[in-house]
Amino acid sequence: MRLLGFALVSLFLALMVYATGGLPDRGNPEAPGHENVWHYYLEKSMEETATPNVVTAVLADYRSFDTFGETIVIFTAGLACIVILMKRLK
């Protein structure tokens, strides 16, 4: 069992190391991940929201609906903990 797991993990490791060859260099400014909408946030956040920290501005203003969903998930997880560990009625 342990040997099989070790073999599977080695296979996974080899596959992943092979796949890193296709990724862009670390810190490359022209990587495909940097061709998105984020220029807009950095250039407009100061004039539209008066907030210098762009992470906060995007988190709580531009993408606040997403944050609302995340907060609901957190709250539901807390309620689920109570319900799971509640004392059962005999």
Binding site: N36, E43, V54
Partner: peptide, 25 residues
């Protein structure tokens, strides 16, 4: 990605804020 007067308003001077935001949540 915290806008500073000394660095300027150009987006090319800052790192990408979106991954930070996604991982924060």
């Amino acid at each position: 990605p915290i806008i500073d007067e000394e660095i300027g308003m150009s987006a090319a001077q800052y790192v990408n804020p979106l991954p930070h935001l996604l991982i924060l949540t």
